[in-house]
Design a protein around this nucleic acid. Structure first.
Lengths: 315, 315
DNA sequence: TTGTAGGCGTTATCAG
DNA sequence: CTGATAACGCCTACAA
């Protein structure tokens, strides 16, 4: 491995001068700089990031926390983060938390031990002892007091879901709520319920964890009571469509189903899924940009990205 | 941040003794060890991984290369790697290469700069200058001479695809090939074609990159000629099912479609997809274990995991 | 069994 | 503008 020491010997200057010439911080005569750069190129010198991180106590690694990378929503977010990161010469460490506060804390600790430059988290337990605010942090799809965050407009998304179903003629609506404790899911439900209420539409709600048992028992009655179903995300909608098909309930004729996320697969399921499109990739990309701003001491105001209805066959 | 220096002061011994007590390497009296451990606990000491990595020139980070994390096959692999990694106190850096050799090389370089303990790669350009063999490397879904690798039994998988279609009565089969340059896709095609050949079944092949144009133009003829379609993976099968539906070609009555991978979504598409099940999670998990063996100087013989037919409605 | 000292590769603070 | 030199936090001969 070639180090600045080697370069120093090669060029005939001190390591200090080499370092300055390389980083651009501090003085170095144009001539020396040129020679150093040339030697670096020739010897294929690459700075050791570990040494740099130790010295500056700040690495070019960012930690990313997601509940489960296996949920197809998150790979898109991560891709957005990673692309922007690499463009800025940063690397990404992934942590799957399974919504488990212990795992969350463990990763937070790990990120600290690795002098990570910052953290982007899509999971965040309200009471977090492990995070003492030392490192820049961006919350994604999560809001918390005093912490910068980025999310899509979930309230609007929920409203769009309800409005669309109403426009399509639904007047008995089932609202399936998302995983508890997520502000993004809460907001979607609030938006939908509020709209249903205002428009005087009959509705019921179902907790996320009740869904599976509902689908597994053939409770035809439970479904035939409704002619519209609002799902908290597309994956849930897939399950619902499947359950409906098993019960021979026609979609969209007997009941209209709307999802949320607009995952790639939503055009492949049958009937193809009407849903709310979120700029998932951009959420990740912008989160990283915000993190960089924060790290540079610049302000990073929280962002709310826009959402839009994507009409397909399920409604 | 509390360091071994702090612990040393606290306990009243030297940093060397603390280090020895903590790592277990080298001598430390039971009494001193106890006191050091107690102090570490009390002061919430966590070793700085960066410093350790610099000193030992080996971090507890492994680099993982995938073509695109957005392809739902890879999150499962990654989850397998990550779960096993965290269990062994390792972290995972993800790199998306988009099958681009330049990006691949860049990440290899990055992994080196970060003193990564090893690399697991699901993309690997044949001629790789950037990898000089310094660090342990496991190839996943890829085989190359002299490099340890892990993959599922693609040859068998291809045979199973063909056998099943034949058993279901197909006698004019279209074999869609996977992305070029991947040994896993090549093997699947070889297995399928060889079986078709042996059984005297009529068939044609289609290159991966021709698929989209075939699907976008309504070439009814091209599809009606066949009563069986073998796809290189499930995502391709989804597209094919979609195209077939658009053309009003009945699946499985007019044509039977079989995929490969058994992604979660394959039971949600309609008709649900018959496919070849691979132990995706285990591929990742075992890859990490192999890497650890390699890093420990133990032998890590290449592995081939088993596959099995998963019958659903599309055939 | 313990402490001293040197080094991992880099950056930063000083004099010169 | 440049060169010693001291950190960063940890590990490990080697000496005591």
């Amino acid at each position: 491995m070639v180090t600045i020491k080697d370069l120093a010997k090669e060029v005939g200057v001190s390591v200090a001068t080499v370092s300055r010439a390389l980083t651009g911080s501090g003085y170095a005569s144009p001539d020396v700089r040129r020679r150093v750069l040339e030697a670096a190129e020739r010897l294929d010198y690459k700075p050791n990031e570990v040494a740099r991180a130790l010295n500056t106590s700040r690495s070019n690694v960012v930690g990313v926390l997601v509940p489960d990378i296996t949920n197809p929503y998150f790979p898109k977010v991560i891709r957005g983060i990673e692309d922007e990161a690499i463009r800025n010469d940063y690397r990404v460490i992934i942590g799957n938390t399974d919504n488990d506060q212990k795992k969350e804390s463990k990763y937070l600790e790990i990120f600290r031990q690795n002098n990570c430059a910052g953290i982007i988290s899509a999971t965040w337990s309200i009471e977090h002892k492990a995070y003492s605010g030392e490192r820049p942090l961006i919350l994604l799809d999560r809001v918390a007091e005093n912490l910068p965050s980025i999310e899509a407009d979930n309230l609007k998304g929920g409203r769009l879901q309800a409005m669309h179903l109403i426009e399509r003629g639904a007047d008995k609506v089932l609202v399936i709520k998302g995983h508890e404790g997520y502000s993004s899911f809460d907001d979607r439900a609030v938006g939908a319920l509020e709209t249903l209420e205002t428009q005087g539409i009959e509705y019921e709600t179902l907790a996320y964890r009740q869904l599976d048992s509902l689908l597994s028992n053939d409770k035809l009655d439970d479904f035939t009571r409704f002619n519209g179903i609002i799902c908290p995300n597309d994956v849930t909608a897939y399950k619902v469509l499947n359950g409906l098909r098993a019960l021979d309930i026609a979609v969209p004729d007997a009941v209209k189903v709307i999802g949320y996320d607009n995952l790639d697969f939503s055009e492949y399921v049958h009937p193809s899924l009407t849903t709310i499109g979120q700029p998932i990739y951009e959420l990740g990309r912008n989160a990283f940009r915000m993190l960089m701003d924060l790290a540079a001491g610049k302000p990073a105001p929280s962002q709310v990205l826009n959402v839009a209805l994507v009409r397909r066959q399920s409604t």
